[in-house]
């Protein structure tokens, strides 16, 4: 096979695998008593919820309800997470004081907090925001902290030789050098936050994509569940694509491919 023939296969193979996926889906969804809706039924249900409201809201309103929770929580997670991460990474005293507490709380999956947070904060907007905050705060702290600890010692030496005092060393050299690590943490955090909001909404909510899935379960509407799952995946993909683009803009020295 010559190279252009090989290349051709790289275009054919993905089409083939996606084709097989849909073929399997269609095959499994045949029969009257199956719990698997056909791709066509899923698409129809998707278009239907785009126009016809469920619980007084169309799909886009539900997506926005979830996104809003994520964005609010995310704002606080970034502010506090970067602050704590810098503290843990930069100051030995801070690290030995707060580090152990953080290490105890860190391995608890954010979803395990849901029952407690609902008891504490009720069933309004606050508990969802708190859950998402817990889920996105931890990766931001961890990435910021390790970014600061793993800074190239050569850059620190260069800063010292150029006359930086300790404050300048942090703000002029260490923090800018850590921005890529912080952004990587933010990307992980966004995925984690999006997962948490769906989980929180599945337990108690009147709106949001997680609520829609549970509504589908309660009414045996499998097409609705599948349509929502795909929507959740697509939204997550969009969010991380936006962030990757943003990284290119914010740190061209690290992420941008242009030479």
């Amino acid at each position: 096979m010559n190279s252009s023939e090989v290349k051709k296969w790289y275009y054919i193979l993905p089409v083939l695998s996606i084709g097989m996926f849909f073929a399997a889906w269609i095959f499994l969804s045949q029969g009257a008593d199956t719990m698997i809706p056909t791709p066509y039924a899923t698409l129809q249900r998707f278009l239907d919820i785009c126009v016809n409201p469920i619980s007084e809201a169309t799909l886009i309103v539900h997506i926005w309800a979830s996104l809003k929770r994520v964005l609010i929580a995310f704002f606080f997670a970034i502010v506090l997470g970067v602050f704590l991460g810098v503290g843990l990474g930069w100051s030995k005293a801070f690290d030995s004081f707060l580090g152990p507490v953080f290490e105890i709380l860190r391995p608890i999956p954010p979803i395990a907090w849901i029952p407690l947070v609902i008891l504490w904060c009720g069933i309004g907007e606050l508990p969802k925001v708190v859950i998402v905050f817990i889920g996105s705060f931890v990766p931001i702290v961890l990435n910021t902290c390790s970014g600061i600890k793993e800074i190239d010692p050569l850059l620190i030496n260069a800063g010292l030789v150029l006359g930086a005092n300790r404050r300048q060393l942090l703000f002029e050299i260490t923090l800018p050098a850590t921005v890529p690590a912080i952004l990587a943490g933010i990307r992980t955090a966004l995925s984690s936050g999006w997962m948490c909001v769906v989980a929180a909404e599945m337990i108690v909510a009147k709106q949001g994509v997680g609520f829609l899935i549970v509504r589908g379960q309660e009414s045996g509407d499998t097409a609705l569940i599948l349509a929502c799952m795909l929507v959740i995946g697509v939204v997550n993909l969009l969010l991380s694509t936006i962030l990757v683009k943003l990284e290119g803009v914010l740190c061209p020295w690290q992420f941008s491919k242009t030479k």
Binding site: L154, L155, L162, G163, A164, C251
Partner: peptide, 17 residues
């Protein structure tokens, strides 16, 4: 004083940003 002495590093040690 620190800052009053010039140094050139093997691996450049430039600030990439």
């Amino acid at each position: 004083k620190m800052g009053d002495l010039g140094m050139v590093f093997q691996k450049y040690a430039l600030f990439p940003w």
